[in-house]
Amino acid sequence: MITLGEVTLHRVVEQTTPIFDPLAFFPGLTPELMAEDAAAHPNEWLDAATGLLNLPIQSYIVRTPHHTVLVDTCVGNHKRRPTRPFWNMRDDDTWPRNLAKLGFQVEDIDYVLCTHLHVDHVGWNTRLENGRWVPTFPKARYVFSKGETEHWQAEHAREPLPLFEDSVLPILEAGRAELVADDHQLGDHLRLTPTPGHTPHHVALEIGRGAVPEAVLSGDLIHSPIQLRHPELTMRVDSDPAQVVATRRRFLDCHCETRALLCTAHFPAPSVGRVEKAGRGYRLVAD
């Protein structure tokens, strides 16, 4: 648990098994750069045993004096993901067990916030009940960017997307979604900030009552520590590679100044730290 004044942060881990070929995941990564960076930072982002990315799948819970907010919901269970064998039709209780270990039940969640609508950020939005997908969190409102939702609705209309059908559409149909602007304020302590490029309306979440955030959850704006040292590295499904690089540099420059605690979605544990400039890139320093 991390305490920031009146707010506490908790990580809920679903998966830590190394996944993805790094050269496929980062199209601009060369074997030479990969070898050089992995040697300088052994077993940090590249698993030495498998040669695959250390890329944890995890959520955050943010508790304010007024609300318990779940940010991103990982992969989930019983979801058809044929192009991702390691996520296809999972039947694994790691995530709910880890949620319970932190002292939370699904009934405790007031809001579910998705930084964007990709497969590993929406999975536990829903669960299978008598052959139907229903909201996992019985009391929660689900906060989605309006622009992000409309983008994927249009994509789904052109070609059915399993993740939209099983993890987003049931929330919309149940009337449980709040479609908001990309700079939406959620209570006194939480506000969205636009960070487009990975998806058209990707958002980060700033935490703190003042104008300067105490912490920020970056979602998939940054996937891996190597992207701090080499911010130009894009990820294979970035919707706008040039935009995401510009957004990432602007975001990191900003938080070198604010000294906000940077809470990443996929960095290996502890996943959080303060960002500093380091040469032409950046580094994350443990708090």
Rank of each mutant, 00 (worst) to 15 (best):
Pro22His: 02
Asp120Leu: 10
Phe20Ser: 13
Leu128Pro: 02
Ile19Lys: 08
His184Glu: 01
Thr64Phe: 10
Ala242Trp: 05
Arg209Tyr: 09
Val62Trp: 04
Gly279Thr: 14
Phe144Glu: 07
Ile2Ser: 05
Leu128Gly: 01
Trp45Phe: 15
Ile2Ala: 06
His223Asp: 00
Leu161Val: 13
Pro96Tyr: 05
Gln105Cys: 06
Asn54Asp: 07
Arg209Val: 11
Glu36Cys: 02
Leu29Phe: 02
Pro194Phe: 07
Leu233Met: 11
Glu44Trp: 14
Val180Trp: 15
Arg209His: 12
Glu44Val: 13
Lys79Val: 07
Glu214Asn: 01
Thr149Lys: 03
Ile57Gly: 01
Thr247Leu: 10
Leu4Lys: 00
Ala215Gly: 12
Lys101Cys: 02
Gly279Ser: 15
Glu155Gln: 09
Ile109His: 10
Ile207Asn: 04
Gly219Arg: 02
Ala24Gln: 10
Gly28Ala: 04
Leu169Arg: 15
Val272Arg: 15
Cys114Trp: 02
Arg176Trp: 06
Pro268Gln: 03
Ile57Ser: 05
Arg80His: 15
Ala100Pro: 00
Glu178Arg: 15
Asn43Glu: 12
Asp238Leu: 04
Cys74Trp: 07
Ala204Trp: 10
Gln15Val: 03
Pro200Tyr: 06
Thr83Phe: 14
His151Tyr: 15
Leu33Glu: 00
His78Lys: 14
Pro200Leu: 08
Asp108Ala: 12
Arg248Tyr: 04
Ala215Gln: 10
Gly147Pro: 07
Met89Val: 11
Ala177Gln: 00
Asp92Lys: 08
Arg283Lys: 15
Cys256Pro: 08
Ser167Asn: 09
Pro42Trp: 03
Arg127Met: 13
Glu232Phe: 02
Val237Thr: 06
His67Asn: 13
Gly5Met: 05
Thr195Asp: 11
Ala39Thr: 13
Pro200Val: 13
Thr3Lys: 15
Glu214Val: 01
Gln185Phe: 03
Leu190Trp: 05
Glu173Met: 02
Leu169Asn: 11
Arg158His: 12
Arg141Trp: 05
Arg274Trp: 06
Pro200Arg: 13
Val275Pro: 01
His202Val: 05
Tyr111Asp: 05
Val272Ala: 15
Gly219Glu: 04
Thr149Ile: 11
Thr73Phe: 11
His202Asn: 10
Ala181Val: 09
Arg236Met: 13
Gln15Cys: 08
Phe25Pro: 01
Glu276Cys: 12
Tyr282Val: 00
Gly28Gln: 13
Tyr60Ile: 09
Phe267His: 01
Pro231Asn: 04
Asn54Pro: 04
Glu173Leu: 08
Ala211Trp: 02
Leu163Pro: 00
Ser167Gly: 03
His10Lys: 09
Val212Ala: 12
Phe104His: 11
Val212Leu: 10
Val203Leu: 08
His201Glu: 12
Arg97Thr: 14
Ile2Arg: 08
Phe26Gly: 03
Gln185Leu: 08
Leu128Ala: 03
Leu228Gly: 12
Lys139Ser: 05
Pro18Trp: 07
Thr16Tyr: 02
Val13Cys: 07
Tyr111Met: 14
Asp287Val: 01
Leu113Gln: 13
Lys146Thr: 06
Arg141Glu: 03
Thr94Ser: 15
His198Ala: 06
Ile109Cys: 11
Val71Gln: 03
Ser167Arg: 07
Arg80Ile: 09
Gly76Ile: 06
Ala38Met: 02
Ala49Asn: 04
Ser218Val: 09
Ser59Phe: 08
